[in-house]
Nucleic acid binder design. Sequence first.
RNA 1: GGCGACGUAGCCAAGUGGCAAGGCAGGGGUCUGCAAAACCCCCAUCCGGCGGUUCGAAUCCGCCCGUCGCCUCCA
Length: 519
Amino acid sequence: MGLRVYNTLTRRVEEFAPLEAGHVRMYVCGPNLYGPSHVGHALSYLVFDVIRRYLEYRGYRVTHIQNFTDIEDRIIETARAQGTTIEALAGRYADRFLREMNALNIRRADHYPRATEAIPQMLDIIRALLARGFAYAVDGDVFFRVTAFPAYGRLSGRSLDEMQAGSRVEVDPRKEHPMDFVLWKAAKPGEPSWDSPWGRGRPGWHIECSAMSLAHLGNHLDIHGGGQDVVFPHHENEIAQSEAYTGAPPFVRFWVHNGLLRLTEGPEKMTRHLGNIVTIEEALGRYHPDAIRVFVLSSHYRSPATWSDASLEAATRGAERLRIAAEHAEAVLRSAAAGKGETRRASGLAPAADAARAAFEGAMDEDFNAPRALAAVFDLATALNKAADSVTQSPETAPATAELEAGSRMLRGLAGVLGLTLTASMSPAQQAALRRLAEDLVREQPGLFDPAHPLVDRLRAGGAGNAVSGEELVAFIADGRMRARQRKDWATGDAIRSRLDSLGILLEDTPTGFTWRLR
RNA sequence: GGCGACGUAGCCAAGUGGCAAGGCAGGGGUCUGCAAAACCCCCAUCCGGCGGUUCGAAUCCGCCCGUCGCCUCCA
């Protein structure tokens, strides 16, 4: 059974196969660089990141192109309002965008072409469209003639007649048809502009994506993605321009659109225009990237989702559960107990891991059903926890070491296809606070620590600096705490645990010692 | 007004006509000095409402109620 993908163009789930065997050409609408991106954008990029990761998991080579819109009305307005240039403004937000993509563990596209670097290709397309009667020039503006393109409206499922009836904006009287759209805009005084056969001007709103996708991916893309809100007019216009230009339909074989995100407060979709946004920066300040991802993957990519603290907190707990399962199994593997598992009979973990992989692939094959795939990962986490527990608690059903290892690898592997890191890292602030705590403890309760430990003197002198890792510090402190607990000095032990907890470090006692993790 | 989605447990949410995944929260238990985590058990005779088709419907059809998207820049 192969991969099936919903195609907006046909409104059906279809068998997926790229035009060129083994190679998927994918273009995803990127950011307009006039301001910060919000979590609605993040949702879209996360969705296509997972699609890309799964395609690669299935063995496809993926060429992933994402555009940067760096010339557009609001960029001009914003740059003017801030007293800067469009280059500086767009550059600043492009850098920020890439940093945020990294933080969200979204893999880099192969290339991020910028609109202003594709002006020559745009001019080529516009010239060709004029020559073939698909466009007309008026006073330095160039319009696309929708009546010359019979398939216009097919993607969004509307006819030109319907669209005229519903038209709510005043129509430029120079247009032949109300739905004709601008390919090239004559320059206004003080605006950035480029030379063209029709005078100085700048590109219209839709031409950049046609120019850049055709330039980087050729005349036929396998997948073109974006939010459902850009189906019309943006993608409809892209089809018209591109196919009229190449004369070789289809421009795109699979149109893939994600559902939109809204905020709990006020039911409308999140959009920079309405101002009801949570920026990616704010989201990352509050939630772990894995939590944001679990939230996004918890509902199907074509359904609308609602951003709420309750949902994000639930996702945080879910992401933690997966991370703990992986870390727990790995801790057991590192401990002495696992070594004895070599010859034990099969525990049921291996079949559970196989079942999880099969369920995962079955789900993702069916139009990237990530919620179901995620459910398979959760089931595997449960099986893995059970197996890891049995190593110390009921050895008669414990898995062999190799089996436990394969199980935890499978968990990380499948989670990784969804882009989950299953890691938590200590922030520099946490690390500094941890060092202060260690210094305080060495001074307050020297008896807790082994005087021979190399850290003791350095901490007492306050000179441990940054050379000591957070992991070493936690191990050092936890070791001191263990000494107190061995003396049944529960009060001291609990106090240290609670001080670590307030730094976001959770100590957990186990029959064989302790484990710790970041909250 | 036109076109298109969606309404499933306290919350989020999957569900391809054949006895309702998963996560969070909650209750009980095991483990434990305590805590945490983990594990086990429980938690929708029911899928917005009313009809219809069918041996059988959350899944198909009709009507109604409600919510949202697009029709304008928008992931």
